[in-house]
Amino acid sequence: MTPIVRIEHVEKTYELDDNVKFTALNNVSLTLHKGEFSALIGPSGSGKSTLMHIIGLLDKPTTGKIFINEKDTAHLSDNEISTLRNEYVGFVFQQFNLINKLTVVENIILPTVYARKKLAYDPIKKAHEIMEQFGILEKARSYPNRISGGQQQRVAIARSLIMEPSLILADEPTGNLDTKTGNDIIQLLKKLNEKEKITVLIVTHEHDVAEKTRRKIHIVDGEIVSS
């Protein structure tokens, strides 16, 4: 199996007041392989979000290494890191994190605005295809704060797919949704994994959600206890 992300001996510490250090991640090593559908499970404060941010190159570890497609990211510039975030990873957040002043379709194509490479497809056309597939096509010209939570999360997933990333990182994607809608969203991610062969990592504290994935990575107090 081909590794997509490999992290080695990652440690993340925060300096609190009075020179007290807080260790969010302690010597974490983990490999995500192409086509995996995994869950990162742990109670709140276990460091799972921090780990996700580091895997997604939003945050930097205090020590340790991150390899994307077997390439060390330690010496990349901010621009190169931004390009990697743009091309290789798609984020889905608990709070949806859509931009309310842009329409649904504009939110979906936003990553393509920041793309440096020439895209082999028309972003608007592709956005319409995804919206149709997700059943939100009629909301294309709506604004995010005018549609339901489930629809917003579909928009967020559509946005994460527009650059055709190899990895989707979903941080508590069902956290703000009712059980049924939450299930639909997980099913949607599962379908993407099965049909499009996209690697998906879901960060969650709900065991129901984790049960639907094939690989479960347990994290407690900043350490991976089983994977």
Partner: peptide, 16 residues
């Protein structure tokens, strides 16, 4: 600030 964070997460560079 939040919007800036979202845009950065989606791949916006500092220059953008």
């Amino acid at each position: 600030i939040k919007e800036i964070g979202i845009r950065r997460a989606l791949g916006a560079r500092k220059f953008d």
